[in-house]
Amino acid sequence: MRSLVAVVVSLLCATAFPASAGSLPAPIAIEIPSGGYVLHAQLYRPNGQGPFPTVIALHGCGGLAGRSDPVLPRYRDWAADLVKDGKAVLLPDSYASRGLGPQCRVKDRRISGRRERVADIVIAQKWLTQQSWAMPDRISLVGWASGASALLWAVRPQLPEHVSPDFRSAVAFYPDCRASSGLGWSARVPTLILIGGLDDVYSPPACRQMIDGARGRSALTRIVVYPGAYHDFDRINLPFHQVAGADAAAPERGHVGSDPEARADARKLVSDWLAR
């Protein structure tokens, strides 16, 4: 793969991000040319020149951006928390980079978590290792739903392309574990899975089976199942409801809704896990 060149739409050195979660400014738009396409991403950084530990944050099937926002509130809220912890956050936009909108209800998807999205993760990691403000040995992954499923592929020992330095750790929010649990999944970096016990979009039992099956032949893995919590439990102010209608950015089935207690616990667990 040719060396990565970043075209930064805003000047990185001129932007300082305050630690307050309530005053997180607009992200910096990044373009990373690689092969036959350009990977678009959004970047949040703490104050100062760094170097900072960095998180590659992976959106779900609804995409990264909204109609008027480059980053949807669910990801911006987490970015604010991570920046407050002193971490930079890079959010690759796997769909917009390929001219696509939300993919939740697309039957013949052109983007595979196992291929294209893992390629985006590798490209983002290589770009970050070239940035003076990023700590190359402290790059971690956080993903949600289909982004979390892609993360599970990216941390497997069988990753097709070598990543060096390797990822520090990984956190997967409510991934689809069904394929991985049947393929003898294991991880080469510490990996934490957070999922609601009542998640009926994906399968908590499949995730538990996957983690149980990895014991003894994997890097550190852990699963936390929140009893009473549903899919999207970590979103702020999302009323509990059954998915309905034809919203292309919503799951095809199941229930979604906030769980403030589970989110608060997840916030602490994520902070501790990424600090390892």
Rank of each mutant, 00 (worst) to 15 (best):
D85R: 06
P92T: 10
K107H: 00
L141V: 04
L269K: 06
T191V: 07
D200K: 01
V118R: 01
V55F: 03
A262K: 07
M1Y: 01
R74A: 14
Q103I: 11
D234M: 05
E261G: 13
W185D: 03
D199P: 03
P204A: 13
G60F: 06
V201E: 07
C104N: 07
G197T: 00
R263G: 02
A249V: 11
V243G: 13
W144D: 13
Q125D: 11
A187P: 09
S180H: 14
D166A: 14
D93M: 14
P160M: 13
V243H: 15
P51N: 01
S23A: 15
D77C: 02
D137F: 05
A21C: 02
G101Q: 09
S20Y: 00
L91E: 13
P51D: 00
A262G: 10
W133I: 03
H59N: 06
D77K: 04
Q209S: 10
G196R: 02
D81F: 07
G48I: 01
V89A: 09
L58P: 11
A248S: 06
V122S: 07
G254W: 08
R263E: 03
R76K: 11
S271T: 01
G182S: 06
R76S: 10
S132Q: 08
S271E: 04
L91C: 14
A80C: 05
G101V: 10
S258Q: 08
P102Y: 10
T54M: 00
L128K: 11
L91Q: 06
G254Q: 09
V83Q: 02
A124W: 01
T15L: 14
P136E: 04
R45I: 15
T15F: 06
V106T: 04
S97A: 15
L274R: 03
A145Q: 08
L183A: 15
K126D: 12
R168N: 09
L64P: 06
A26F: 04
R168V: 04
H241A: 14
R215D: 06
R215Q: 07
H59S: 07
A57T: 09
W185K: 12
A266Y: 04
G257I: 05
P165M: 03
Y202M: 10
D108W: 02
G257Y: 13
H162N: 08
I30K: 04
H241N: 12
V142L: 11
M210E: 06
V38E: 05
L220S: 11
R267D: 05
G86C: 07
K268Q: 08
R114T: 10
A148W: 08
R267W: 03
A219Q: 12
A148C: 13
G197K: 00
L11V: 09
A262E: 01
H59L: 03
H241L: 12
S94C: 12
L82A: 11
M1V: 02
M1G: 10
W185N: 14
D81C: 12
P205L: 08
R105E: 11
S68T: 15
Y226R: 02
G245Q: 06
A170P: 13
A148E: 05
P92Y: 10
P190M: 07
R156L: 12
A229W: 00
L82C: 01
R117M: 15
L39H: 08
S132M: 08
F52N: 01
S258C: 04
C177M: 14
R67A: 15
W127E: 06
R208C: 01
V201G: 09
